[in-house]
């Protein structure tokens, strides 16, 4: 997760307007989800892989490692589609019979499961493209332009910032516990972990209090307003995106 964050800040497409990347990722995802053709899904997967690796500069191996993370989730998800329960053992390609009940997979269901599997993977690749090219704060600024509620966006920003503070604190507490043999046995581990969690909870409260004080000292009155980075808007990029999406849609008719 933290690698993802690092790539987002160091990728080659960091200077491109975040809204353009956002539109590209979401439009492609939409096309991927509504297309009935497996060719389109394959094309989306290929397109996003190339855009993230050749384009934005994420190492290919790293990109595939990221793609493996949701792999097992999607697989378990589509298994329920592939297999069905029936009293009639006929029609299944293979199956297991328990008494009068047969659990098995028919060819149609297998095809359907495989298609959904690739479709999900295609959609995930679109989201990865966005995560790998656009830092969280830029995504938030896009959402602000799209008029998402500001309370929600402020919370997103603060949560994002304090994930890292919390991780640093966790690492420090854990280190000090380890240096006092906190994790040498299962029993110690359970005890140390429970103390780690409770002290993180207490410290988060302290942090929140300190943050509120520091914000008040800078005339905070209930709304966090900040300047946002400005990016050049490229009509050419929008034209390219439109072209790609139309091309993908046309692939459905081949």
């Amino acid at each position: 997760m933290f690698d993802l964050d690092t790539y987002a800040y160091t990728n080659r497409w960091i200077k491109i307007h975040p809204l353009e990347k956002f539109v590209f990722a979401l439009a492609t995802m939409l096309v991927c989800l509504i297309s009935p053709s497996v060719v389109v899904v394959g094309a989306v997967l290929l397109l996003m892989t190339v855009a993230s690796t050749k384009g934005a500069g994420t190492p290919v191996g790293q990109f595939f490692r990221f793609m493996m993370i949701p792999f097992s989730f999607i697989l378990t998800g589509v298994l329920t589609i592939a297999f069905s329960v029936s009293h009639d053992p006929g029609g299944f390609l293979f199956g297991f019979t328990f008494g009068s009940i047969t659990v098995g997979a028919s060819q149609a269901n297998l095809m359907k499961a495989g298609f959904i599997f690739f479709k999900s993977l295609g959609a995930v690749s679109c989201l990865y493209f966005l995560s790998l090219t656009t830092p969280v704060l830029e995504v938030i600024s896009v959402l602000r332009k799209l008029k998402a509620p500001s309370l929600f966006l402020e919370l997103m920003g603060l949560v994002y910032r304090f994930i890292f503070v919390l991780m640093d604190t966790t690492a420090l507490i854990r280190m000090s516990q380890t240096s006092r043999l906190g994790y040498v046995s299962a029993k110690n581990t359970f005890r140390s972990l429970s103390q780690l969690i409770s002290s993180l909870f207490v410290r988060s409260f302290h942090r929140a209090g300190e943050l509120a004080t520091a914000l008040t000292a800078r005339n905070y009155t209930g709304e966090i307003r900040t300047l946002e980075k400005e990016y050049p808007v490229s009509k050419r990029n929008y034209a390219v995106i439109l072209g790609i999406e139309l091309g993908l849609l046309l692939l459905n008719f081949t």
């Binding site: 704060l137 603060l158 994002y160 942090r207």
Partner: peptide, 8 residues
């Protein structure tokens, strides 16, 4: 770390 609220 208790003063800086933004990641930018």
């Amino acid at each position: 770390d208790s003063q800086l609220f933004s990641a930018s």
